[in-house]
Simulated assay, not measured.
Amino acid sequence: MDEQSPLGRGRRAAPPLRDIDPVLERITARLAARHGRAFSKETVERYVEECSWVLSAKARVATHLPVLVERFADQRLGALARGMGLSPKPVPEVLFVCTENAGRSQLAAALLRHRAGDGIRVLTAGSEPGTEIAPVVLRLLAEQGLDADEEFPKPLTREVVTAADVVVTLGCGDACPVRPGRRYLDWDLPDLSGLDIESARAVRDGLATRVDALADELLPTRVPRR
């Protein structure tokens, strides 16, 4: 099944990185095998190329780029397939959106993953994504014995919004597109940037309270808090 350009920009050339084409070909082959029941190889290739172009604009370390491209393209293709009903959607999906996808959205996502386990699929995105997760987020998670797993800042795309059952915005205003049938929540908590550590901890604790309440609503059976 073919799709129009995912971000509405038309097909983009791969970024000008040395030897990137063979890398993208290998990524495309792996993702085509994984998503072949839903999408043609051409569609997968277009997503891979576009993800490479988008992420390379902000990449600090080019050697890490292929890994991020594969994760981002995989997430988008999976979300597209679920949103279109082309693959199973066994659990509710929650999308956290903030401006840079480096602070509150990442913190909330890590807390919900810990709280819900495999009972809820959790995704994140940013309206103007940064280059890396904020150090304060990593510190706040480490204090709870948690980490950000393999997360990284990534742009908001229509696929993840379409797949989501609940979209939680954290300071990104009206940047998130509205899709019928989705539940939208706006959690009004301060940006972590510039806060002292005690104030940042208060934000984390406020997010934890909201995350617990959301998990209790969405999980089919109550999962004990860990």
Rank of each mutant, 00 (worst) to 15 (best):
M1A: 05
D2A: 00
E3H: 04
E3R: 02
Q4I: 10
Q4F: 12
Q4M: 06
L7K: 02
G8Q: 07
G8A: 03
G10K: 03
R11L: 08
R12C: 04
A13P: 13
A13F: 13
A13V: 11
A14W: 14
A14L: 15
A14R: 08
P15A: 06
P15F: 08
P15D: 11
P16T: 07
L17E: 10
D19E: 13
I20Q: 01
E25D: 15
R30H: 12
G36A: 06
F39K: 00
V44D: 00
Y47D: 10
E49S: 07
W53H: 15
V54M: 11
L55K: 01
S56H: 11
S56Y: 11
A57L: 12
K58Q: 07
K58M: 04
V61Y: 15
H64Q: 10
H64C: 01
E70N: 07
F72Q: 03
D74M: 00
Q75R: 05
R76H: 11
L77Y: 13
A79K: 04
L80V: 02
R82K: 15
G83N: 10
G83R: 05
M84A: 14
K89E: 14
V91D: 04
P92W: 08
E93L: 12
E93M: 15
V94S: 02
C98Y: 05
T99K: 00
S105I: 06
A109I: 08
A110G: 09
L112E: 02
R115L: 04
D118C: 02
G119T: 06
V122M: 01
L123M: 08
S127L: 04
P129D: 01
G130R: 02
T131H: 06
I133N: 00
P135Q: 02
P135I: 04
V136L: 07
L138I: 07
R139L: 12
R139H: 14
L140F: 14
L141D: 01
A142M: 07
G145N: 06
G145V: 09
L146I: 03
L146S: 02
D147V: 03
D149R: 15
E151H: 14
K154G: 01
P155C: 01
L156P: 07
L156A: 04
V161S: 03
T162S: 08
D165V: 09
V166M: 00
V167M: 02
V168D: 01
V168M: 01
T169V: 04
L170A: 01
G171P: 14
C172D: 14
C172H: 05
D174Y: 10
V178E: 15
R179D: 10
R179G: 00
P180F: 08
P180S: 07
G181C: 09
G181S: 13
R182L: 06
D191H: 10
G194R: 05
L195M: 13
L195G: 12
D196H: 13
D196T: 11
D196R: 11
I197F: 14
A200H: 08
A200Y: 08
R204V: 12
R204W: 15
D205R: 10
D205Q: 14
G206H: 11
L207V: 12
R210G: 05
D212I: 11
D212W: 13
A215K: 12
D216K: 13
D216M: 05
E217T: 10
E217R: 11
L219A: 04
P220R: 10
R222T: 15
R226C: 04
